[in-house]
């Protein structure tokens, strides 16, 4: 009985926070779903057209994942404005954000957009057993 009531108290204490986080992150997560759908269905229609690495949609997905819906959208829009035939293109990464992920849980898009960073980490791990 006591356990049950403490569970109820815990529920009422944490539920608003969970709900709050859910609502706060909702716009970001909706955008992430939209961008992933676009990348899966519409992007392949065109093949590669982007002059940048990462491509505009990959940039947008990372920006929204790392910076949230508002700043991420702003960054993505600025990138789209840069991506035109009179820009030389090249490598153009998303600026670093304040979100941090536990080790091994970095979102896939962040890993894929920064291959040199994560390749270095991985080759370190590969190298360890031989060094020991």
């Amino acid at each position: 009985m006591h356990e049950l009531s403490s569970a109820v108290v815990l529920f009422f204490r944490t539920a608003p926070r969970i709900l709050g986080t859910f609502l706060w992150e909702l716009p970001r997560n909706i955008l992430i779903i939209l961008l992933k759908t676009y990348r899966r269905i519409i992007s392949p229609l065109y093949g590669q057209v982007c002059r940048f690495f990462p491509s505009c949609s990959a940039y947008a997905l990372e920006a929204v994942t790392v910076h949230g819906a508002v700043k991420g959208s702003w960054l993505a829009m600025r990138r789209l404005a840069r991506c035109h035939p009179w820009n030389a293109g090249g490598v153009d990464h998303v600026p670093a954000g304040h979100r941090h992920w536990p080790e091994g849980q970095t979102p896939m898009i962040v890993v894929l957009n920064n291959p040199d960073l994560f390749l270095a980490v991985r080759s370190d791990e590969d190298g360890r057993p031989t060094a020991a």
Partner: peptide
């Protein structure tokens, strides 16, 4: 992409 940029040429026309 870095290589294209270095040579000032890019085969992709942007969207």
């Amino acid at each position: 992409m870095a290589l294209y940029k270095k040579h000032g040429t890019n085969p992709f026309s942007a969207c």
